[in-house]
Design a protein around this nucleic acid. Structure first.
Lengths: 184, 184
DNA sequence: TAGGCCATGTAACCGGTTACATGATTAG
DNA sequence: CTAATCATGTAACCGGTTACATGGCCTA
């Protein structure tokens, strides 16, 4: 899934500026399985316009720099639909946490404990964000995807909560002060 | 998680040649959250050796090229443990399938149906592979990670099986022959 | 008054993949 | 006879990020 398709997907759903595209990819609908940076958004947008996939209109603003609002063209929409029709590549998934867990024995329990906690926190936050997105949106496909993500993350949390102590138990060092830990 | 750390992690678990490292990362313990190519393994190994993180011994073979078996050094092990102690970055997850699902309405039902089926197949295969790895390994951390993965993938499958028809229903085109489909 | 938000864009860099080069052995 | 497996390595390429440049407005 190249940036091309990603940007066309977003513009297919709504007109947007480069700045907004970035926000949509970090906080919006798809934020949990996609992420792009300005350094690739702006050049791509320019190229896409040259190729006739998108058009732009400048909105003059007082003080702030002009907004350049991009819209997808019919050509762009066709291109996008064609790209989507290709069998999707399997999900790509990279996890530093898993590598740490696999080597829990090399680290003190504190490290493992903190990593699990911040993982749980991150998962919880992501779920909240998705719930928020879903509330302000009555598109059925978005709902399906959102519920899918929420369901999977919930299972993830479940396993983590039930098995975190056993992973901490595999750590190579003891917590500095067991009594303090117990009081937490 | 750079290739550096990844390779040190593998060599920390066992001695291996570049070729074997590649195999371990695609079929082995960590295959479902990691993946590296020869083009980065060999240069990294060479650099790691120059830096004193690993050593190599050549095993002469008749016919085949010599095997260059790498081992981690104490320096390498320390470096690895230190790198692991850094708070792990959140998982990175990219999914073309999700993008397709989000835009199910732009595609004929057949496309969606096939994508779901091959996703289910891929998940099932991955789970089998992990089960295989776990059978030949009695390391507790590997088991924890394996079970984690299996549990999450199982939930994923669950949602897919229960909700696939509703996603297909959101597609933009009908299956060419509903009666044939029903008979499947 | 510091920091965050809005807003666009470029250039340098980098981590990594793909493709190429080479070649014997073995299994189907 | 073909394809896969074993085995190492290089070079070209590329998709993308990070950092930089610029600057006004608003909020704490």
């Amino acid at each position: 899934m190249n940036i091309n398709t990603l940007i066309l997907a977003i513009l297919n759903a709504q007109d947007a500026t480069g700045y907004e595209i970035k926000k949509l990819s970090t906080d919006g609908q798809f934020s949990y399985f996609v992420e792009i940076s300005f350094g690739s958004i702006y050049p791509t947008l320019a190229r896409l316009e040259k190729e006739g996939m998108v058009t732009s209109r400048a909105e003059v603003q007082s003080g702030k720099p002009d907004r350049k609002v991009y819209s997808i063209t019919d050509t762009g929409r066709m291109e996008f639909i064609e790209a989507l029709a290709q069998p999707p590549a399997p999900d790509k998934f990279k996890s530093e946490f898993m590598l740490l867990a696999l080597n829990a024995g090399t680290q003190p329990a504190e490290i493992i404990k903190k990593s699990i906690e911040s993982r749980i926190e991150h998962l919880t936050n992501t779920m909240e964000r998705i719930k928020g997105v879903m509330e302000n949106c009555d598109n059925e496909a978005t709902e399906w995807v959102g519920n899918y993500g929420l369901y999977c993350m919930n299972c993830d949390l479940d396993y983590l909560n039930k098995n975190k102590s056993s992973l901490i138990g595999l750590a190579g060092g003891l917590l500095k002060n067991p009594s303090t830990e117990a009081a937490e």
